[in-house]
Simulated scan of single mutants.
Amino acid sequence: MTKEEIIEITNGFLSEEFEVDIDTLRPEAILKDTLGLDSLDYVDLVVTVQSHFGVKLGEADFVGISTFEDFYRLIERKIAQ
């Protein structure tokens, strides 16, 4: 799976799941602020990523994840493992 495919799929489900305009999901945007994430939303995010990509994310995976670009790279790394 290419990075572009990961971004397209990720933006699609994030826009739908968190009811935000897909145009606000830019690589440099802050993930937490743009999606308005609270602790329960992170659980939804983990479940949604697993259902779309078949990879599991844990709390430790989110350390250092700030922007959407960071998040895309995380998914890319997990898929490659």
Rank of each mutant, 00 (worst) to 15 (best):
M1V: 15
K3S: 06
K3H: 09
K3E: 10
K3Y: 11
E4L: 05
E4W: 02
I6M: 03
I6G: 03
I7K: 07
I7E: 02
I7D: 01
I7S: 02
E8G: 00
T10F: 00
T10S: 00
T10G: 01
T10M: 01
N11K: 14
G12D: 14
G12M: 08
L14Y: 02
L14D: 01
S15A: 15
E16Y: 05
E16C: 04
E17H: 08
F18D: 08
F18V: 05
E19S: 14
E19F: 05
V20L: 06
V20T: 06
D21I: 05
D21E: 15
I22L: 09
D23Q: 12
D23G: 06
D23N: 15
T24P: 03
P27Y: 06
P27C: 06
P27A: 07
P27S: 08
E28I: 02
K32F: 04
K32D: 14
D33T: 01
D33L: 02
D33Y: 01
T34S: 14
T34F: 03
G36Y: 11
G36S: 12
L37N: 11
D38F: 07
S39F: 12
L40V: 13
L40F: 14
D41I: 05
Y42W: 13
Y42R: 12
V43W: 11
V43I: 15
V43A: 13
D44S: 14
L45I: 07
L45R: 04
V46K: 13
V47S: 12
V47L: 15
T48Q: 13
V49G: 07
Q50V: 04
Q50C: 07
Q50S: 13
Q50R: 15
S51E: 15
S51W: 04
H52I: 10
F53P: 09
F53K: 11
G54R: 13
G54K: 14
K56Y: 08
K56G: 09
K56D: 14
L57G: 02
L57W: 06
G58M: 09
E59H: 08
E59T: 12
A60V: 08
D61H: 10
D61S: 09
D61R: 05
D61N: 13
F62V: 07
F62I: 10
V63W: 03
V63D: 12
G64A: 09
G64I: 07
G64L: 09
I65M: 00
S66G: 08
S66W: 00
T67C: 00
F68R: 00
D70C: 01
D70S: 04
D70F: 00
F71N: 02
Y72C: 01
R73C: 02
R73D: 09
L74F: 04
L74N: 08
L74T: 04
E76S: 09
E76K: 05
R77F: 04
R77T: 13
I79N: 04
I79S: 03
I79W: 03
I79E: 04
A80C: 04
A80Q: 12
A80H: 08
Q81V: 10
